[in-house]
Design a protein around this nucleic acid. Structure first.
Lengths: 153, 153
DNA sequence: ATTGAAAGTAAGGTCTA
DNA sequence: TAGACCTTACTTTCAAT
């Protein structure tokens, strides 16, 4: 936590982050009302949170099932030999791979894949076998999908 | 894919979803410019995407490391006996658990946890041992953090 | 198309180091 | 007195009827 960010993350800063995590399209004027500051002051605050890299962006959250992508899975992938680079190239452009983390342990990578049906899942897994050994777990439900970050309590 | 959603997901609909995934705070007037429709028409389109549940909401994406949470981990949790319910209660309120999916296979649950340091990670894992056997993989880097959903190509 | 709300701009005031 | 942070006043842009 650097010096410059500390000033930003006071009571008001965390209130703004809470509101924008909940609804990123909240108008600045509404944010101003909630934190008890003028609209220009809040606009400046938000701009500085963005400039400091604390706010990385604003994203619409979509319902994947309603977009024809009802199946999600976790795939743990152990890479064979020295195939990291070709795999990363594949991961960067494969539309099914929604996230990919390099992790400790023998698994090497943890992937979140999102597909339209089991045939699509099969193709996705097969493609991964070119780089290593995948272990797949289909997502049955998601008791916790997203947790907002809270300030110091 | 129901009948009502099909009408929404034409060329323009997907253009709107693409823009809002990229920057959820894009003004409606700007969206209108990009898709070549009037502002009221676009406002109506977006409202219908929301009402159909295709757009679930708008979220600010934060940099967790800059907020004092530099460590993330995947934890696979095999639940002992019939302790699903107490575990789900725990998961629903634990601030470290950012996502939790029930999955096929022996793992039962896949958790994304976000913590401030290794001591915090240790406490988080210890707490999980009340419900089952956790296997932890620390995230080293994230080659793919988020993939936008694209329409039919 | 009109009207009220919201966002952006500019100038100035207060507090602190 | 310099700088950080806020306010008010004003103009432009946006959004809804």
């Amino acid at each position: 936590m650097t010096l410059s960010t500390e000033r930003l993350l006071d009571e008001v800063g965390w209130q703004l982050l809470a509101a924008l995590q909940q609804d990123a399209r909240t108008p600045l004027s509404e944010l101003a009302r909630r934190v008890g500051l003028s609209a220009p002051a809040v606009a400046e605050r938000v701009r500085r949170l963005e400039d400091a890299g604390i706010i990385r962006g604003y994203r619409a959250e979509l319902d994947l099932a309603r977009l024809g992508l009802p199946l999600s899975a976790w795939i743990r992938l152990t890479i064979d030999g020295q195939r990291d680079e070709p795999f990363l190239k594949h991961a960067a452009q494969a539309p099914e791979i929604h996230s990919c983390d390099r992790v400790t342990g023998t698994d090497c990578f943890v992937l979140r894949v999102v597909v339209s049906d089991v045939a699509h899942l099969e193709r996705t897994i097969s493609a991964l076998k070119a780089y290593g050994s995948p272990i797949t777990s289909l997502v049955l439900s998601s008791p916790v999908t997203r947790r907002d970050v809270e300030g110091p309590r």
